[in-house]
Simulated assay, not measured.
Amino acid sequence: MSTRERILDYVTKNPGITFRKLAQELNIGIGNLQYHLRHLEKEGKIISKRLGGKKYFFPAGFEEEYRRLMIAISNESQRKILLLLAEGDKNQSEIAEKLNLAPSTIVYHTKRLERLGIITKIKDGKNTVYSLNCDVNVLVRIIREYKPKIWDKLADKLIDLTLAFRGEEE
Rank of each mutant, 00 (worst) to 15 (best):
E25T: 09
L161K: 08
M1I: 02
D160A: 07
E94T: 04
I73Q: 08
E97I: 11
E169V: 01
G31Q: 07
S2G: 14
E170V: 07
K54Y: 11
L85R: 13
E114K: 12
G61H: 06
I73N: 03
N91L: 06
K49I: 15
K54I: 00
L82S: 02
A164R: 10
A102W: 04
K90C: 09
L69R: 01
K54R: 14
I150G: 01
C134M: 12
E168L: 15
L113R: 02
E41L: 13
R141H: 08
L99Q: 07
E76I: 06
R166C: 13
L8Y: 12
K45V: 00
G29M: 01
G61M: 08
D152T: 15
L99D: 03
S104N: 12
F58A: 02
L37C: 10
L158W: 07
K21A: 14
S131D: 11
K153T: 11
A96I: 03
S93Y: 09
L40D: 03
I118K: 03
K98V: 02
I95N: 01
E168M: 14
G88H: 08
I30L: 06
P59I: 05
K111M: 04
L85F: 10
I28F: 04
A23H: 00
E76R: 08
F58Y: 04
R144Q: 11
I106R: 02
I95D: 01
E63G: 00
Q92N: 12
K98G: 00
E76L: 03
